Simulated assay, not measured.
Amino acid sequence: MRFQHASDLWQDFPHLVPGVIFTRGITHDASVDRPVAEFSAAAAERLTATQESGLPEVQAWRRAFSAMGLRPTQYRCASESLLRRFRKEGSLPRIHPLIDLCNAASLAYGIPVGVFDVSRINGNLEVRYADGDEAYETFSGEVEHPDPHEVIFADDTRRAHARRWTNRQSGYSAVRDSTADVLIIVEGLHETAPADVAKLTGALADELRVHWSVAPETAVLTRASPRFVR
């Protein structure tokens, strides 16, 4: 499988920094209470100084959404949505230990983290502009078609695994109890993204090793080296 961002996305968003993690051996019975608590505490501390909209990581995604013709207060990147809920409710619902871990890490760093069940991806996965005829399945099972030129995660069968870039993943490739092999994508656009994405990618990989005893493969992509192949 190859993961990459399309060349015109790199051209339009030259500050993009993607981090990638692939691993096998995920189970639904791991305990991630300790890292979830630590990441959540870090997020809470950051939110004492400013609301999520004031974080540079979120501001960069708001600018990107505006550039894509989306109202950033209507369509939020995943990390902003999580931070907003966390600020209001004080915690996030538990879903699956891997999702709980990645959501908490996203809170702490303010950076969107997407997690995909590899068994549900056909062929390669590319972040690209949509043609508009791709199929996207919601968490309720409804099928939608992205707007032309909307940024999507698309596989070789033209199935969209995320809409509006970092706004909403598909229920089709969401992690479930039977998930074993996963692809985790971290994406930053802010000034310190090169260092922050590398740190977040490394932190998640370390927690995967500790809590699932797996050997994750990781990479931080660049415009000069834009592909992850396994």
Rank of each mutant, 00 (worst) to 15 (best):
K199W: 10
T179P: 03
S173A: 15
K199Y: 07
S178C: 09
I152C: 02
D177I: 03
G171V: 03
D147G: 01
L183V: 04
E191P: 00
R159H: 09
Q169V: 04
L183S: 05
F153H: 02
V151L: 15
E187W: 03
Q169S: 10
A180R: 15
T192S: 12
E150D: 09
Q169E: 13
P148W: 09
K199M: 11
S178V: 14
H149T: 06
D181N: 12
A193C: 05
N167I: 13
E191H: 10
T166R: 12
R164G: 00
D181Y: 10
D181G: 01
R158K: 09
D181C: 08
K199Q: 13
T166P: 00
A174C: 11
H145V: 01
R163N: 03
L183P: 01
S173Y: 13
F153Q: 00
V175G: 04
E150C: 01
K199I: 00
G188V: 05
E150Y: 01
S170L: 06
I184Q: 07
H161I: 05
H145L: 06
P146C: 01
V175I: 15
P148E: 06
W165C: 04
R176E: 12
A154K: 01
D177M: 06
F153W: 02
A154N: 02
H145F: 02
G171P: 00
T179S: 13
T166E: 15
P194L: 10
D156V: 00
H149F: 07
T192A: 12
